[in-house]
Amino acid sequence: MTDLNPHDGHGSQQAKLGHSPVADVPHVLRVTDTDPKAARRAERQVASMFVLSMVLVVAFVVAYWTIDKSTNVYIPVFGEVGLMTIVLGLTSGLSILLIGAGAIQWAKKLMPDVEVVQMSHELVSPEDATAEAAANYERGKEESGFARFKIIRRSLIGAMALFPIPLVFLLRDLWSSPVSGTLTPDEILSKTIWKKGERIVVDATYQPIKPEDLPVGGLVSAVPASMNEVQEAEGNLNARGKAAIILIRMDPSEIVSQQGDGWDYQGILAYSKICTHVGCPIALYEQRTHHLLCPCHQSTFDLANSGNVVFGPAARNMPQLPIGVDSEGYLVAMDDFNQPIGPSFWERG
């Protein structure tokens, strides 16, 4: 067996170190090669897979017409699941799978399993082809005068360089400023619909809030009272994406610092709900630690201490909204945020 100088099917190779020695491996015959019974059995096996595949297609059609799409069924391990999807998936999946399994079984058991050798051709083009290509190129260069006509060449390069510019310009109107082109993106990002006297209402129920409604340790997801009208007028959720806030209440003695003097109301603090990292809404407020955790990237803010970042990738504190009460005793904003809410951007400064 230590014959290191054998031959290959196509002759010529001498075993060298660093090259695989060319040797014959005895070809082991399969059962189906030697036993005609086994071959017939394999034949039946393959055919029955194909037949079963057909049967399953029929089953699929029957299931499609007979199963109601809202029927549920209890299957151990799976629990209570929709019957339709499972049966359609099983029948179509198995019918397709069986075609594949049959074809492969056919190839493995009944088609020849002798490996054949094919010599590969060199990828590099023959020298005359290379020479011809070079000659063609030279002729083209000469005939066009590309090398001679300096002005043509340079002006063509210039024209080609400018030609995509209209295409880029055409992208400009992907967005146009709502107020006749006067507001730039950074100006829009810097403002929300909060303004002095805007009532704070509970998100989803739009109910105004009195200070005594919010106990210590309480949390309310809130929006401006005009949210619904603005939303309807603008036809999108843009205003909501910026104005959403959370209201929390803590014992005033627990407040270490705020972003502005007296921005709380008797221990009620309002903070933006939009994370200053990349803009996920946050309301994972832990009332014991006063920490606010972002579920997306785990930035953590200390709401008792100006909303400062205590952990995670966010670089800026949560913007605080100054609040007070109106004449009827409902909570209102005293102003808009004094900084852009949400993620940083270039012009933010």
Binding site: V87, G93, I96, I99, D113
Partner: peptide, 24 residues
């Protein structure tokens, strides 16, 4: 025929497995 049968068959196997997983 061998590679064609194996590669073609494997397409149906992949397709079939995706259908099964998609259904289950």
């Amino acid at each position: 025929p061998v590679y064609m049968a194996k590669a073609g068959g494997f397409f149906f196997i992949v397709f079939g497995v995706i259908s099964l997983v998609g259904g289950l």
